[in-house]
Design a protein around this nucleic acid. Sequence first.
RNA 1: GGGAGCGUAGAACAGUCUGGAGUGUUCGCCGGCCUGUCAAGCCGGAGGUCGCGGGUUCAAAUCCCGUCGUUCCCGCCA
Length: 594
Amino acid sequence: MRTHRAGELGADDAGSRVTVAGWVQRRRDHGGVEFFDLRDASGLIQVVVDPEEHPSVHDLRMEFCVRVTGEVRRRPEGTENPELPTGDVEIGAADIEILAPSKTLPFMLDDRRDVDEMVRLKHRYLDLRRPRMAANLRARSKATAAIRRTLDGEGFLEVETPTLVNSTPEGARDMLVPSRLQQGEFYALPQSPQLFKQLLMISGVERYFQIARCYRDEDSRADRQLEFTQLDLEGAFWAEDDVLDTIETVLAEVVRDLRGIEIATPFQRLTWRDAMNRFGTDKPDLRFAMEITDLSDVFADTGFGVFSSALEDDGTVKAINAGPQEWPRSRADAITDRAKELGAKGLVWVVVEEDGAVRSPVAKFFSDTETKGLIEQLDAGPGDVILIAADKWRTVVDVLGGLRLDLGRPQGHAELAFLWVVDFPLFEEDEDGEITFSHHPFTSPASIDQMRDDPENAISRAYDVVLNGVELGSGSIRIHDPDVQRQVFEILGIDEETAERRFGWFLEALQYGTPPHGGFAFGIDRLVMVLQNEPSIREVIPFPKTQSGQDPMTGAPTWVEPIQLRELGVELGAEAKLRKEASPSPEPADTQTD
RNA sequence: GGGAGCGUAGAACAGUCUGGAGUGUUCGCCGGCCUGUCAAGCCGGAGGUCGCGGGUUCAAAUCCCGUCGUUCCCGCCA
């Protein structure tokens, strides 16, 4: 079919007769001579055509699929294109064959222009021809290759686990699959292979990994899809450092292959509490400072009611120095609205003037000592804008952490800042005041005694890896003692009968000489997104879904034939029926009979 | 579930605030000219349910209400 790949031709090939095949990128018609760029997966080569000899060149349009035979020759002096790797040479066409014409394109395959994502997704196969997207596909493949190479070298076994599994009410919403053979019963698609990989430790695998598709039926975001891919791994006879070392090795290898740089290991480690206090998040972006500063001492005796009541109420007063900012009223209002969205009741802003005085709607409530202390604590200079929040501790750090990102986060991901966040709390309170696990219920506590006596302050043996403020993944040392596992369920308010019903099979497995073990999982989509400097996970997923979970190309999800539902013992509810009547277009014709 | 932005030709936009004939720009498409371009250039042409529905008005892309789609965010995401 072809003798060479287009992008690999060079001066060495001058004089040889070659056949290449690919797509017409651009045609340039000069009347007496015509050029077109032929693109294949390896790159571009310019083809020169004499239209007298080959009148069919007039028919070529963008993205026609063609095969060209001809002689490679050096370009005439002065017409070389230094922008192209193949720019020293060109092919003088002796034969041009149109393998497949193309319809007029629905959008230009051009990285210089942003096309509406809906249009791109409708024709994703064309979108993926664009250099940027083709590079993302390659980067992803290189990432998984690096992962497999590294882990294979370390003696890991790649094992597949089922994708039709049990539903569990904990955690995210499950994607459900109705069973035909067991009518009325459902499988769930896995949110992660968590319990299966623990079972593999009991099975004696010792070192497991899998590049696993995971499913969580929650609302999408720029960095979240309904289905996503994780590197999932687990090791027996492992403690924290074994897991962390392995992950650092894998990440360093992927970064080396995708970015061509060495990253420093071991990564910096922050405890969860330090991360929250200094950056207001459990996934800090360390590429910039703007750290949160505590002002509880400065305002300990303040007459300003908002601060004093927060402090009396066991809360705190903290601030960030946002640095020099344009600060018109409209911006102050917008930032205050954002603070409220993040959970604040309000926001105090203070601008430091040239003369060291402060401008703020509430400056009159501050004593001179307080103003002085404020400026000192935040190391504020003329022009700096200080944002102060006063409330419960968690609210204050959440709000300031969010504002810190809005005001200081670098664009893109030129720089890479990895870190570990460790010493997560074992449990947390949900909004109803119920105690719930903060990682997952199979995470080992740091101290069993503390877990029993003081669950609210208990620390877990869980850790997250964070890159540029993106949570790449998390892991933990697991519980390998069935009694400890039962106790955790008990603290979580899962009674013995329920635990037995849902996890009895797993508690049973734990009783057969389970080795101490731990592991990790990180999102490959997110990692590649950052390394490729993409703003959204969708740019590195070949066929993603929209925010509403639809695929504009295939139309998924769709209505199904009534008989399919009958076979499954499933019926549409009233609301679903209304929707179906209102938008019957995706409905397949009901040609089935009983 | 909620908030915000966006929706005008095949694509990307301007026009919307302050209502007055579907007006315009770039790319693509169709035709013509052109022998060294590489985002070729020049000339000509076609192409529009201004997302959809309703309202206000003598008159709506523009104002109002509703709705659909999409993106970002809050909630949610062990």
